[in-house]
Computed example of a mutant assay.
Amino acid sequence: MGMNLQTIPRASQRRSLSLMVKSRVRSRVVFVDLVDISEGGCKIRGKAGFAQLGDRVTMKVAGVNAPLGTIAWIEGPMAGVAFEGMMHPAMLDHLCEQTGASRAEPRQHRSI
């Protein structure tokens, strides 16, 4: 069955961030840039062709596993991921604190 955008509920509050995360798409390890995130999903940027509609995606964000996701849409290097579970709001706050304010010295990407 094909998923279309109308069937995917727009998640509450989207928060912008820019964070390199280690993800697995069809069990391949792919590093993607997390562009925004909400309780129900996120937007990621990879290399064009890195994913296909319906692919299962797992991501580790700031040392924490995000809910299992599915690629819901793709536009060039950008893709939308719909989480199967909800991301806990406190987790989102934590993420945005980790990444949003670069008042601390820049973190190495290796910390994931």
Rank of each mutant, 00 (worst) to 15 (best):
105 E>K: 11
23 S>L: 02
18 S>R: 12
46 G>Y: 09
79 A>N: 01
104 A>W: 15
61 V>E: 04
92 L>P: 01
23 S>Q: 00
49 G>V: 10
53 L>E: 05
83 F>H: 10
104 A>C: 07
82 A>G: 05
51 A>C: 14
47 K>M: 09
34 L>Y: 07
54 G>C: 02
26 R>S: 09
16 S>V: 08
12 S>Y: 10
107 R>N: 09
53 L>Y: 12
5 L>G: 00
52 Q>L: 11
58 T>H: 14
90 A>D: 15
104 A>T: 05
110 R>M: 06
46 G>P: 04
41 G>Y: 09
25 V>A: 06
13 Q>E: 13
83 F>M: 06
9 P>N: 07
28 R>E: 10
46 G>W: 12
69 G>I: 07
90 A>S: 13
53 L>T: 07
31 F>I: 03
21 V>A: 13
35 V>L: 11
1 M>H: 12
4 N>K: 12
107 R>V: 06
90 A>H: 15
26 R>N: 13
59 M>N: 03
15 R>H: 11
72 A>I: 13
57 V>E: 02
59 M>T: 02
88 H>D: 03
78 M>K: 08
110 R>T: 05
68 L>D: 11
80 G>K: 08
24 R>V: 03
62 A>I: 03
22 K>A: 13
57 V>C: 00
59 M>K: 07
37 I>F: 00
17 L>V: 03
84 E>M: 11
84 E>I: 09
59 M>E: 02
76 G>I: 06
84 E>D: 15
14 R>Q: 13
51 A>K: 04
43 K>F: 14
99 T>Q: 08
108 Q>L: 14
30 V>W: 06
1 M>C: 03
44 I>K: 04
1 M>R: 10
46 G>F: 11
56 R>W: 03
49 G>C: 05
79 A>V: 00
78 M>H: 12
98 Q>T: 13
54 G>T: 08
87 M>E: 04
5 L>C: 00
32 V>T: 06
72 A>S: 13
91 M>H: 11
56 R>E: 04
28 R>F: 00
13 Q>D: 08
79 A>C: 01
97 E>K: 14
18 S>L: 01
20 M>V: 14
4 N>A: 02
91 M>E: 12
27 S>N: 10
3 M>I: 13
94 H>Q: 14
7 T>A: 15
19 L>G: 01
12 S>L: 04
13 Q>T: 05
97 E>L: 13
98 Q>E: 15
27 S>F: 05
19 L>C: 04
92 L>K: 02
71 I>G: 08
89 P>W: 10
